[in-house]
C-alpha cells in the first residue's frame, strides 16, 4: 500500500500546479499553449469527425424512416443537380440542403463567406457554448469574423489556427450582438444567457414599441465586429412597460445551436447594408392549417425547426 503522506504531497503538488495555471491564465498568459494544442489537435478532430459523421447520420436516417418520402420530394425540387444521382446517400443530401440554405442567405445579403463544418463541440457542462470548425487561417479566417448558417447568425470567431477555428456561439453568456428591430429601426443589444432558446434584448430606447413577433437583424457598426443585416431571432416576450429602465425582451434565436453542422464564416462585409432584405418574407396568418401545411412543406427544403416560410421569394 502507498505511504499516505507521499500520496497527499503529490496530490497537493498537482492541485497547486493547476491553481497556478489558473492564476497565470487569469492574468492573460497561456494562449500560446492553446494555439499550439489547437494546431496539433485540430486535424485529429477533423479526421475523427469525418469518420463518425456518416455513421451517426445513418443511425438518424434509420430511426426516421417514415418521413423520408416527403423529404426526398422536397429536396428534389431544391437541389436539381443532386436529384439526378439516384444513389445519393442521406449524408450527402443533408449537407447539400444545408449548403443550399447557406448560399441563399449569403446571396441575399451579398456576404462573401468561407464554408466550414463543425468538427467538435464544447461539452454542455462546461457552460461555455463554443464549437470548432474545420476552416482556419489558411482559408482566410480571422478572429472576430461573423459566422452564419442558413437560418441566421451562429456566432463569432474567437480563436484561429492553421486549419481550425473556434467559434463562440451567440447563445453563450459572454456574447453580445448589436441588434436592430425589423422595419422600425429600433436598436438594442442582444445578449446570450447560456440558454440556447432564450436571448435577452436590451433596448437603447426605453419607449421603443417592441412586441412579440418582431424579428431582429444584426446592426453593424462601422469598423465593428458584426456585419449588418444578419437575421438574429424573434422576440417572444417583452417584460416591463415602455419607459421603464429595465425593459428587457426575450428573443428566440433563428439558429438551433444544438444541431449545427454546416456554417459559413463571413470574410468580406457587404458593400451596402442589406437592412431587412435577408429576412425571409413574414409568414402570413392563415387560419386553415391543411393548405398551409402542405404548401410550406411542399415548397421548400427548409427544415421543420425554422419558423419562417421558404426564403425562395427574397433570394436573388
Amino acid at each position: 500500500m502507498r505511504d499516505n503522506k507521499r500520496t497527499r504531497t503529490i496530490l497537493g503538488l498537482l492541485l497547486l500546479t493547476s491553481l497556478t495555471l489558473v492564476v497565470l491564465n487569469l492574468r492573460g498568459s497561456g494562449d500560446g499553449a492553446r494555439d499550439a494544442a489547437g494546431g496539433f489537435f485540430g486535424p485529429v478532430q477533423s479526421a475523427a469527425s469525418a469518420i463518425v459523421r456518416p455513421i451517426s447520420d445513418f443511425i438518424g436516417s434509420v430511426s426516421s424512416l417514415g418521413s423520408k418520402d416527403q423529404q426526398i420530394s422536397d429536396l428534389q425540387q431544391q437541389v436539381d443537380e443532386l436529384t439526378q444521382q439516384l444513389n445519393t446517400t442521406e449524408y450527402a443530401r443533408n449537407r447539400a440542403r444545408e449548403l443550399d440554405e447557406l448560399l441563399r442567405l449569403a446571396g441575399a445579403g451579398q456576404y462573401e463567406f468561407v464554408p466550414a463544418q463543425v468538427i467538435a463541440y464544447g461539452p454542455t457542462q462546461g457552460f461555455a457554448w463554443t464549437v470548432t470548425v474545420d476552416a482556419g487561417s489558411k482559408d482566410g479566417v480571422e478572429v472576430d469574423q461573423n459566422v452564419i448558417n442558413g437560418q441566421g447568425l451562429v456566432g463569432r470567431v474567437i480563436r484561429v489556427t492553421d486549419s481550425t477555428a473556434t467559434i463562440a456561439l451567440l447563445v453563450d453568456a459572454t456574447a453580445t450582438v448589436g441588434a436592430r428591430v425589423e422595419a422600425s429601426m429600433e436598436k438594442g443589444f442582444l445578449n446570450g444567457t447560456g440558454d440556447p432558446n432564450a436571448l435577452e434584448l436590451q433596448l437603447l430606447d426605453p419607449f421603443a414599441p417592441v412586441q412579440p413577433g418582431d424579428r431582429l437583424v444584426s446592426f453593424g457598426v462601422r469598423g465593428g465586429a458584426y456585419v449588418p443585416g444578419i437575421p438574429l431571432g424573434t422576440v417572444v416576450d417583452v417584460k416591463g412597460t415602455p419607459g421603464q429602465l429595465t425593459r428587457i425582451a426575450t428573443v428566440k434565436p433563428f439558429v438551433d445551436v444544438t444541431t449545427l453542422d454546416v456554417v459559413g464564416i463571413i470574410v468580406q462585409k457587404p458593400r451596402t447594408d442589406p437592412r431587412d432584405s435577408v429576412l425571409p418574407p413574414k409568414p402570413s396568418e392563415t387560419p386553415s392549417p391543411s393548405p398551409s401545411a402542405s404548401g410550406s412543406s411542399g415548397s421548400g427544403a427548409s427544415d421543420g425547426a425554422s419558423p419562417q416560410a421558404s426564403p425562395s421569394g427574397s433570394a436573388s
Binding site: L11, L14, L15, T17, S18, L19, T20, L21, V22, L24, N25, L26, G30, A33, R34, A37, G38, F41, G42, Q45, A120, Y121, G122, G126, A128, T130, V131, T132, I158, R159, T161, T164, T166, I167, A168
Partner: peptide, 17 residues
C-alpha cells in the same frame, strides 16, 4: 487546451485531479 476550449486554463484540471 484543445479547441473549442475557451475558459481559464487549469480549471478542469483542478476538478479532475
Amino acid at each position: 487546451l484543445v479547441p473549442p476550449a475557451d475558459g481559464l486554463l487549469g480549471l478542469t484540471a483542478v476538478v479532475l485531479v
